[in-house]
Amino acid sequence: MRNLRRQTGSGSWVESFASLFGGKGGLPTAQTVLVPLVGSSLDESALKVAGEVARESSGRVHVLYIIEVPRAVPLDAPMDEQVRNGERILKDIEDHWPHKKTSVATELLQARQAGPAIVTEAVERGADLVIMGIDHERRYGDYSLGSSTAHVLQHVPSALWILRAPINQNGAR
């Protein structure tokens, strides 16, 4: 625990995290890891952890980018700007994927609500682990988990890891 705290913010904290499970090779195994990008400051960290877990178990990583479509338009309405943005982010992930033997697949989805879409994808992809990076959000002056995270927490059948940013790091949000 002390080890983890000291290294927060540095590039090697994933290894520190792994050490919680007994060092390299001690990570739990997961053949299929799903990472839904939620636009938080920890999206990238979630990807890193997923990569490590998948590498340890020779599994693969699915990265999900969800565009929430307002009900004022049909679900398949052209969302050009968001689609371009999402495709750029996903392509960037594919292009810079550091693991040679661990495959990464990306998917861009339009859904009414992210939470149920993440759960559906996790089931359809047969994910045995979902990893989400979230920020510490406040709403109406109180802590808010966010409806998507809450939904996934309650409904996703696979294991779920949630990485949460330190409170003061994004306290202004």
Binding site: P70, A72, R112
Partner: peptide, 19 residues
């Protein structure tokens, strides 16, 4: 699932949100 929506069906803002 997402075919449900919580709100007052007589409110203009709700009918706006629901398309």
């Amino acid at each position: 699932g997402s075919a449900s929506y919580q709100g007052d069906c007589c409110e203009v803002s709700v009918l706006e949100d629901t398309g």
